[in-house]
């Protein structure tokens, strides 16, 4: 029995290492010089720590700017989408507006829409109103997309909100607006913070619509810059591993910072 347990454990550890192996390969090769790579291939250990490849790639894509763009877009979307979600869900879950089930169903359906069916009209409309190739267009679009999910989720969370707390606040003379910000938001904060983290990461990872909307270098996000470059097949081996490393690092940082929120909130993400 113990033998079998240990065998299963060993197997799981091996599988986990296999899963992590690509990350290790990327890290090893991103710090190799092109000559080292050419001579010893991708599997050998680097002969020396060669950071020039990463620096060159950073400058080539103006990576600092891309990081800033991604942060502005994902951060704005996370805050705005959580705000819109809680306000809409307040009316649906606590206000119990008539027809709320239909409205919630429509938001659920909105959440299912593939971006392919929205992308061309959005591209066309953005050009018509002068928002094409602006971060604002992407922020508006993903605030709508993420808040469709947030509304659907929060409406059901708020439907079970303790009624006696709401009644008590009303008896104290709080208006609807005050009840929302001073009672509902603080008490729902654990759920809202999970949504904030997920909206940030989901938006950070988006590619299709940002690629269509943001054509100028100054506006592109990290995934758009890396994806377009990869799609053009113009990178050599070391540039490609540097690109992979720079793309992986922010994700790993988020993962380490938010690990607890992510695993705690994964039940929330499950519904998406």
């Amino acid at each position: 029995m113990t033998l079998r347990r240990n065998l299963v454990l060993a197997l799981l550890v091996v599988l986990a290492l296999v899963t992590l192996f690509p990350f290790l390969l990327v890290a090893l090769n991103a710090v190799k010089s092109p000559a080292d790579y050419a001579a010893n291939g991708p599997l050998g250990l680097p002969e020396s720590l060669h950071l020039q490849g990463i620096v060159d790639f950073w400058n080539r894509v103006d990576f600092g700017l891309k990081l800033a763009n991604s942060t502005v877009i994902a951060g704005s979307v996370a805050v705005l989408a959580v705000g819109v979600s809680i306000v809409t869900a307040y009316a649906l879950g606590i206000g119990r507006i008539r027809g709320r089930l239909w409205i919630v169903a429509v938001f659920l359906l909105a959440n299912l829409m593939p971006q392919e069916v929205l992308v061309y009209p959005l591209y066309y409309l953005a050009k018509e109103v002068g928002l094409y190739d602006t971060k604002l267009a992407v922020i508006i679009i993903f605030t709508a997309v993420q808040s469709a999910f947030g509304t659907y989720l929060l409406a059901s969370v708020l439907a079970t909100f303790p009624r006696e707390i709401l009644e008590a606040a009303r008896i104290d003379g709080a208006s609807r607006w005050q009840v929302l910000w001073r009672v509902v938001v603080p008490i729902s904060w654990p759920t809202l913070s999970v949504l904030l983290v997920f909206f940030f990461i989901w938006t950070w990872n988006e590619f299709f619509i940002p690629m269509i909307m943001l054509i100028s270098n100054d506006n592109q996000t990290v995934p758009v810059a890396l994806g377009v470059l990869q799609g053009q097949r113009l990178m050599d081996a070391t540039a490609q591993s540097a690109s992979a490393l720079l793309g992986i690092l922010p994700a790993v940082v988020f993962f380490l910072i938010f690990q607890r929120t992510l695993t705690r909130g994964i039940a929330v993400g499950a519904i998406r």
Partner: peptide, 8 residues
């Protein structure tokens, strides 16, 4: 990001 997985 799926794109980064693709680059890798």
């Amino acid at each position: 990001p799926a794109v980064v997985a693709g680059v890798v």
